[in-house]
Structure formats: structure tokens, C-alpha cells
């Protein structure tokens, strides 16, 4: 779906830190949203967790830099990191170019998937949240 010019694929789950996840069999793929990448501008560096690391939902698991700001990457789901997108190390701009596809960040073997998906947003909840974020950013201008 499109929310005021920002793309949010319907089949994904979203958190309030502006990260998404996609359930693919036994693995969850995560990355950042179109809204977040547009707010950040050109992403120039990304640091992702090591394979095997245990991450916790809503907690930092990496970092990225854009416009001289070092921000956090937040885990959307708890579990064990099974793969990271190594292409981002050389080409972090993939996050800007393709946030839901080539710009994916981490694959996680979830520890508590069903319960944690309940903490994430889709549909009307997502629309309400994104619109409130757009209003919040607009109010600053």
C-alpha cells in the first residue's frame, strides 16, 4: 500500500522504530522502511550483527550512518541471526534504492514468532502510525 507517497508492502509486519519483517518459512527477513530511508537520506555505512548473535525485539542490533548521523538498527523479532546482507557493506545505498528487496538487512531464526508478531503493525494500525509520524515530522518544519 501507499501511505502519503511512502510504500509499505501489505504482506510485511512493521514496528515503531520504522523497521519491517517478512516471514519466509522458518526465517524472518528484516530491513528498514521506505519512510525511514527517505527521512534518513543517503545511507553511507551499515553495520549488521554477526551471524549467530541473539537479538531481541525492539533492541539495537546494528548501526547505520547517513548525513553524519549514526543511527541504530533495531531487531524487529527476537531470535538468532542466521544471515546478513553482506552486499550492504560495500553498497549501503541499496537500502535507499530497494528497502524491501535488495536492501534487506538481517535474517533471523525467530525465538518467539507468533507472540512477537502480535506486537507489530499491519493494515489500519500501520496507516494510523505512519500518518501520525508524517504529521510529527511536518510539525517540525
Amino acid at each position: 500500500m501507499e501511505i502519503e507517497g511512502y510504500h509499505f508492502p501489505d504482506d510485511l509486519y512493521y514496528d515503531k522504530e520504522h523497521y519491517w519483517c517478512r516471514v519466509k518459512g522458518n526465517v524472518v527477513v528484516m530491513g528498514t522502511t521506505d519512510f525511514a530511508q527517505k527521512m534518513a537520506g543517503e545511507i553511507v555505512y551499515v553495520q549488521l550483527p554477526l551471524i549467530g548473535k541473539l537479538v531481541n525485539q525492539g533492541k539495537p542490533c546494528g548501526a547505520l550512518e547517513s548525513g553524519k548521523w549514526v543511527g541504530r538498527v533495531y531487531a524487529v523479532i527476537s531470535g538468532k541471526v542466521v544471515e546478513v546482507n553482506e552486499a550492504l557493506e560495500d553498497s549501503p545505498e541499496l537500502i535507499n534504492q530497494s528497502p524491501y528487496d535488495q536492501g534487506w538487512m538481517v535474517k533471523i531464526e525467530p525465538a518467539n514468532l507468533e507472540e512477537e508478531l502480535g506486537n507489530l503493525m499491519q493494515g489500519d494500525d500501520l496507516i494510523r502510525f505512519v500518518k501520525s509520524e508524517i504529521v510529527r515530522v511536518a510539525a517540525e518544519k
Binding site: 537520506g41 547517513s66 548525513g67 553524519k68 515530522v137 517540525e140
Partner: peptide
């Protein structure tokens, strides 16, 4: 502000 550009 929350937006990075606005912070700067």
C-alpha cells in the same frame, strides 16, 4: 526534533 535534518 526527530527528523535528522531538522536536528542539524
Amino acid at each position: 526534533p526527530v527528523e535528522m535534518r531538522r536536528i542539524f
